[in-house]
Design a protein around this nucleic acid. Sequence first.
RNA 1: GCGCCUGUAGCUCAGGGGAUAGAGCAUCGGACUUCUAAUCCGAGUGCCGCAGGUUCGAUUCCUGCCAGGCGCGCCA
Length: 559
Amino acid sequence: MSIALELQSRIKQAFLEALNKAAASEGWIIENLPPIELEIPKEKSHGDLATNLAMQLTREIKQAPRRIAELLIQHLDLTDTFVESVEVAGPGFINLWLNNKWLYKVLKDIEEQGDAYGRSNYGQGKKVLLEFVSANPVGPMNVVNARAAAVGDTLANIMEAAGYDVSREYYVNDAGRQAHLFGLSILARYKELAGLEVEFPEDGYPADYVIELAKILRQEVPDLLEKSQEEQEAFCKRWGTDRMVEQQKADLAAFGVEFDLWFRERDLHQGHQLDEVIKFMQEAGYLYEEDGAIWFASTRFGDDKDRVMVKSDGEPTYLTPDVAYHWNKYSRGFEHLINIWGPDHHGYIARMSAAIQALGYPADSFEVIILQLVTLLRHGEKVRMSKRAGRFISMKELLDEVGKDAARYFFLMRAPDSHLDFDMALAVEQSQENPVYYIQYAHARICSILRQAEENGVKLPMAAQADLNLLQTEAEIDLIKKLAQLPEEIIEAAERREPHRIARYCYELASTFHSFYTHCRVLGEEEALQEARLVLVQATKQVLQITLGILGVSAPEQM
RNA sequence: GCGCCUGUAGCUCAGGGGAUAGAGCAUCGGACUUCUAAUCCGAGUGCCGCAGGUUCGAUUCCUGCCAGGCGCGCCA
């Protein structure tokens, strides 16, 4: 456990013991013990840590909160907690000030743990499957897919750091109606290019990229039309979706996102898993027949209407393979499923959750994060997009224009459930408005210091050799405190599934460093102080690298 | 009509049952003979959408309303 967390748990323990002692001597009877919460106050004058315990207890003990706080403090034993002073303040807060010595241990901690700093065992190795993006393999990915990629990948990084065993997975809808129409569209273009008169399929994909695909296909398979119509269609569907999947893989890799598994819907069909899941649900008594279709009684698990699983024409609906897929996820040993979906899929949650329960898994083992829309802007002006006319900015185009670092950071700046304004002009602007450069610049500045130290023949000290007590100014202390917060920030972000917290933390760390940089020199100071500050600067570099790594943003040595 | 998300500073957004509600940008004023000024320091700004309710305490939780966005198929 990190020092900051260990310290907090020791202090909480001390409060618990103080409460027991005070209760014994005052005759308090406490039926519902409130959780003991420690927070880092927003206001510096409120100490390093504070607790509202006394105020929480007013409900149990009918006394004034400040009075309770005083009594708690009287019984408080703070040996080995670094707590230097305690006060009762405001309506009944207990504020604690810590001795800086614990901060020096943080620096040693960071050095010892290296890349592992910030990691914890909070998740206890729980097997989690995170499915995200899962765009249909029938066209280029859009900006919401890009947002999902950034959020999903970073959330996986965060949860891994918090001690979960996370797998990243992409579900490929390569067997449904969309895939079929896509195949027909390619085939129609192929025939056109061969000079044949064809009617373009209704609800097909008229966009230009389909023509480009048809051109490639003509070169690769010039004798396609010699096959039967059925074979031609099947071939185009398979070839086209495979081609798109390869494209998506490449685009996502350029975005720094790699999946553990690209799960093919067609494998579910081939393995007869649709039949199996239907049989299972039938035997469990959750399916019924009506109007020639097979229905799932999802209302029994809180959905607002029952859902068709097999249409009257014998074809499964979209839901059926999806249920089979989730069944498959559990069968592979995952204990918790998280899906990241676009804003147009929220209506789908209730039926999927119902299916999970019908399959016999707990409702809370399945979780959906709904991302809100992305509005693209240029210089504050909305970028008009029309999918029908084939005019929209794809994920690849966005990346080509603004670059991986800016794109990832911008997508990660906002809470998932917040609509996102993404100004593409701002993202490439090298100005004060652009937070990506601000953070990277902090890292580059550190590298510059370390580079020059090396050039001057200054040996980089280990934390144990340096006299860290020399780090005393406000700028130095603030910086170490910020470094000390990483482990709890990661746990908080993992628990709440909110990657933007880490983006924010990273920005704040850079800001704290920039302030330190202007207030404190490193090189050229008296040797002992120079050493201590070099230790601090190296630790900051380490933590910036770790957090940028979680965000998937590069940490340049020079800018 | 029903469901989900959002409503906080001029703009973009954090925060969140508690202390004087924050940050960036924009605006204004300062700081480079010294490790990168893509930086720092300072200044002002708020019926936290509206109305009720729960609470010792609500911007935060609950209900209703208003506004914006997105959904509501034997489509995927």
